[in-house]
Design a binder for these strands. Structure first.
Lengths: 166, 166
DNA sequence: TCTCAGTCGTTATAATATAACTAAAGGCGA
DNA sequence: TCGCCTTTAGTTATATTATAACGACTGAGA
C-alpha cells in the first residue's frame, strides 16, 4: 500500500458522480470518441455541482488536480462535452450543466436534444425538461414563416417550487 | 446659417430610423422615462442595423458622434433601452436588436414581451415573432412542475427562407 | 516504421461586461 | 429663484468570458 508522500490528489467525486462518469465513458466508447482524463475531470466537476458552473470556476477546481491547467484546457474539454451532448451551455449564465437525458435516464441514449431549461432566480438551480409541446410549437412557428430550424435555446427564468415557499 | 468648420456630425439616421426614434421618444415621454441624446444615438444605431449589434460595435460607431464614449456609456444606454423594452438582447450572440413590437406595430404599445427570435445562420439576420402557442406551451410546462416563470428566452437558430434558396 | 489525426501545453490576447468614484444636469418643492 | 435630491454621464480601472496561434506529444493504422 502506498503512503501519501507526493501522492496525487484522490479522485474527487461522489459515488453518484462516479456512476454517471462510468456511463459517460461507456457512451463515448460506443461512439468511438475519447473521454480523456482531463475531459473526465471537467465533466465530473460539472456533474458534481447542483448549479451551472462557469468555465473559470471549473478551471479553479481543475487546478487542484492539474496544476498547469489553463483556459484552453477547460474550453477544449467543454467543446468536446458539448459536441457529445454530455453537457449543455446555459446562455443566460455563460455556464454549463450536465445533460440529464444523456446520463440519467434509463431509456437508452438516443433521446433527442430538444431540452428546455428552468432557471430558478431564488436558488440558482437549473432543471432540464424535454417538453414536446414546446418543441412542436417552436417547429410550427418556424415552419409558418418558412424558417428551417436547426437548434433552439429555451431558457425560462423564474422561481422553482421550493423557492416559492420561502 | 452656420458653415461647416467644427460642425458636429450630422444625425446619421435614415428616415425610417428617424421615424422609429420619434415613436421611441413618444413612448418614453408617456412613461416619464428620458430618451437622452446618448440613449437615442445608441437606439438609432441598433435600429439602423439589419442584424444584432454587439456593444463594442455600437461603441465604435457612437464614437463618431461622442469622442469620449466608453464601455459604460454604451452599457448604460443598453440597460435603459432593455428596461424600457425598446431593444432585446440575443443571448447566443451577446448582441442587441430593436424590439419590433414596441416600435413597429400599429396596435398600440401595450403588447406583451413574450417574443421569440429566429436567428439565421446564413445571413445573420434575426427576426422576432410573438407566437402564443410557444408562450402557452412554456407556461404549461413550467406549471406542470410547479415552476413560476417570470421571463423566458427562446432563440431558434436555423436558415431563413431566403437563405434556403441559395 | 512512418504518418496523420487528434489531443494537449503554453503564451498571449480578444471580446464582453462591470465597479467605483466624481461631476454635471434636470426635476421639483419651498 | 434657490436649494435639494435623483438621475444621468464622464472617467479610470478591472473583472469575466473566450479564442488565436504554435509547437509537442500520442496512439492508431497504412
Amino acid at each position: 500500500m502506498l503512503t501519501s508522500t507526493a501522492t496525487a490528489v484522490q479522485d474527487p467525486f461522489s459515488p453518484d458522480t462516479l456512476a454517471l462518469l462510468d456511463r459517460a465513458a461507456a457512451f463515448c466508447t460506443a461512439r468511438t470518441s475519447r473521454l480523456t482524463e482531463t475531459r473526465r475531470l471537467v465533466l465530473g466537476l460539472i456533474l458534481q455541482s447542483s448549479k451551472p458552473v462557469g468555465a473559470y470556476d471549473i478551471l479553479d477546481h481543475l487546478r487542484q488536480y492539474q496544476r498547469n491547467a489553463a483556459p484552453p484546457t477547460v474550453y477544449r474539454a467543454i467543446d468536446f462535452l458539448l459536441s457529445q451532448g454530455l453537457i449543455h451551455r446555459i446562455e443566460r449564465m455563460s455556464a454549463f450543466i450536465g445533460c440529464a437525458h444523456r446520463l440519467e435516464c434509463h431509456h437508452g441514449h438516443g433521446c433527442g436534444h430538444r431540452a428546455q431549461f428552468l432557471i430558478c432566480s431564488g436558488c440558482g438551480a437549473v432543471s432540464e425538461v424535454e417538453d414536446s409541446e414546446i418543441t412542436h410549437a417552436i417547429a410550427d412557428a418556424a415552419r409558418k414563416i418558412g424558417f428551417k430550424p436547426h437548434q433552439s435555446t429555451v431558457e425560462i427564468e423564474g422561481l422553482c417550487a421550493a423557492c416559492q415557499q420561502g
